[in-house]
Nucleic acid binder design. Sequence first.
DNA 1: TTGTTATTTCGCATAAAAGCGAAATAGTGG
DNA 2: CCACTATTTCGCTTTTATGCGAAATAACAA
Lengths: 107, 107
Amino acid sequence: MKTRVTLRQRTHRAEVFKALGHPDRLRILEELTDGERCVCDLVDAVGSSWSTVSRHLSVLKEAGVLADEKRGLQVFYRVALPCVATFMDCLDAGLRGEPVEMRRCCC
Amino acid sequence: MKTRVTLRQRTHRAEVFKALGHPDRLRILEELTDGERCVCDLVDAVGSSWSTVSRHLSVLKEAGVLADEKRGLQVFYRVALPCVATFMDCLDAGLRGEPVEMRRCCC
DNA sequence: TTGTTATTTCGCATAAAAGCGAAATAGTGG
DNA sequence: CCACTATTTCGCTTTTATGCGAAATAACAA
């Protein structure tokens, strides 16, 4: 069951990982696990400037990790790839060298 | 069952994701899913210079994604976090908007 | 010891990411 | 239309990543 990975696919995957490769962006994801939040909430949570948080959000959205929706004056972001959150718990366990149950891992 | 994520933990996670955020490093991971390989094999697979591939490997090893072992003149690398490979299949499906079975996802 | 092979480290140049304030944009209400 | 608020984009500087060749290191063989 070996699937060939195309360059295009690999580049896309790398883009997702790159988007996740920043502590503040992971912080944003944590904030969004409970549900959608407006940008103002995320600015509070992260503690950087509006422009910086906005850029983080656009990186995550561009990679397909988040989706956004404008309602009135505010823009609400939510997680578009739920498996990411579960994968991170798996990662933590893996990095500590603990065995991990398959079904607790992701998606 | 909400777990508080520490800054340290988040930074470590981000380091793993950053390490995975490069197409050539994902190519290396693909090469290693079948088992360990020496650096020379990976240089062939990736197509960059020895110094570049060696740096990619050290980034992945530093993040805890790979482990290495020296035997004779050669150094062999292998995957230290098997869940990463399964997660990527999950990612592909998620990015295409397909529903994904939980148990096929990782670890 | 000397030579040879496999790999890593160093030094440097170029490219990309991060972060911020200022300006721009887009809704909303008067 | 004007003012106000929420958010994004722009322009810029600083930091970090990438990639290469050259030099260094390590293990083995003669």
